[in-house]
Amino acid sequence: MANALLSIQIIPKTNNGESVIPYVDEAISVINASGVKYQVNPLETTMEGELSELLSIVEKMNHKMIELGCPGVLSQIKISYNPNGVSMDQLTEKYR
């Protein structure tokens, strides 16, 4: 079982004030390529996995934004860590 949930809201800075949506789509594609379980929500995306792997994905997402030409990136993250296991389903099952 995964030991961490990590929610991220990535806010890329754009050069000319253009929409950030295409950049956010690229950031989500980094998560998708990683193979971890994730859920896209209106204001953030939540990933489930091992903490070290999730933090590595965050790093790759930030690097991707720079590769795409963003001069900077703001990433807001929340982490739930439990060595005995944690899952999105456990935390939300009573609401489904």
Results as ranks from 00 to 15, higher is better:
Lys94Leu: 02
Glu93Phe: 08
Asn16Phe: 09
Pro42Ser: 11
His63Asn: 12
Ile31Tyr: 04
Asp89Gln: 14
Ala2Asn: 06
Arg96Met: 09
Tyr38His: 15
Glu59Met: 03
Pro22Arg: 05
Ser87Lys: 02
Met88His: 08
Pro71Phe: 06
Ala4Phe: 03
Ile21Cys: 07
Thr46Ile: 15
Val30Lys: 04
Val40Phe: 06
Ile77Trp: 04
Ser52Val: 04
Asn3His: 08
Leu91Asn: 11
Thr92Leu: 14
Ala4Ile: 04
Glu67Lys: 13
Tyr23Leu: 15
Tyr81Asn: 05
Pro42Ile: 07
Asn62Thr: 08
Ser29Ile: 10
Gly49Gln: 07
Met88Leu: 15
Gln39Trp: 03
Glu48Pro: 10
Ile21Val: 15
Val58Gln: 03
His63Leu: 12
Glu53Cys: 09
Pro42Lys: 13
Lys78Ser: 13
Leu51Phe: 02
Ser56Lys: 07
Asn15Cys: 05
Ser87Arg: 06
Ser7Val: 03
Val73Ser: 09
Gln9Pro: 00
Ser19Asp: 12
Val40Glu: 10
Asp89Lys: 08
Pro42Asp: 11
Glu50Met: 00
Val86Tyr: 03
Gly72Ile: 00
Asn3Arg: 07
Ile79Ala: 06
Asn3Ala: 11
Ser29Gly: 07
Lys60Asp: 01
Val36Arg: 10
Ser7Ala: 15
Met65Thr: 03
Val58Asn: 05
Lys94Ile: 07
Met1Leu: 07
Met88Asn: 09
Ile66Phe: 01
Lys60Glu: 06
Tyr81Asp: 03
Leu5Gln: 03
Ile10Ala: 09
Val30Arg: 04
